[in-house]
Amino acid sequence: MSDTIDTTAGIRAVPRAGWHVGTVVAVHRETPNATRLELEVDGWPGNAPGQHLDVRLTAPDGYTASRSYSIASSGDSSRVVLAVDKLPDGEVSPFLVDEVRAGDKLELHGPLGAFFVWRPGGDHRPVQLIAGGSGVVPLYAIASARAEAGDETPFRLLYSVRTPDDVYFARELKALAGTSAPLRLDLVYTRRAPDGWPTPPGRITREALEAAVVPAAQHPLVYVCGSTGFVERVADWLVGFGHDARSIRTERYGGM
């Protein structure tokens, strides 16, 4: 049965999940609508690139709310970086974006998920990353892990954002695109593009997607992450282009 399943990237040992207390050590405005939180996590066993954690918040009356967040960092460090997009009617994300400050403690469960993971040192099969909005978080972790390891696997990131101000990890991605084995970065703007941008802003089209991804003939591993609607659309099109469904890994964040 195993030969029908692609085990090249995910099914490997990952650190054991547990409950931890994270202390917020830095809060950084990532975009006008998102925050980057850097946490020092007591007893954190490290995490693989692409994993997530669950944050559990408890109100004074005992009410709790849990949500998942991808981890932008990886490796053995007990420093964990998150980036959270604020949903206007959300229960948890406005709290994390607007209320949390340095010194606050958060209850964390992780690291989680051995499936949506990529590690350097594999078989150099090309990798295509596709992100919508905050869905870039685990893909940024994957791309940075590759660069840190000096791995030369061909990497491409297609990143859909609302406007030029909404790019997460903008500086870091630019740096990754300028290394000796560069990450190839393609941006798509859905609401407002920079001046002189060749294509008008709008949702990515099937044709634009096909033109910007590693062709199916090269058998890339594809990681797609973002809102559920974005992931559905992209994954369906990829299968239509001839990509093997087994080579596409998805991380749906919810929403439409």
């Binding site: 409950w19 207390v21 559990r56 918040l57 408890t58 109100a59 004074p60 009410y63 709790t64 709310a65 229960e91 709290f95 209320e99 949390v100 606050d104 403690k105 958060l106 209850e107």
Partner: peptide, 10 residues
């Protein structure tokens, strides 16, 4: 281990 999260009301 649960503790109240500062500022969270839900």
């Amino acid at each position: 281990m649960s503790f109240i999260t500062r500022g969270f009301g839900g």
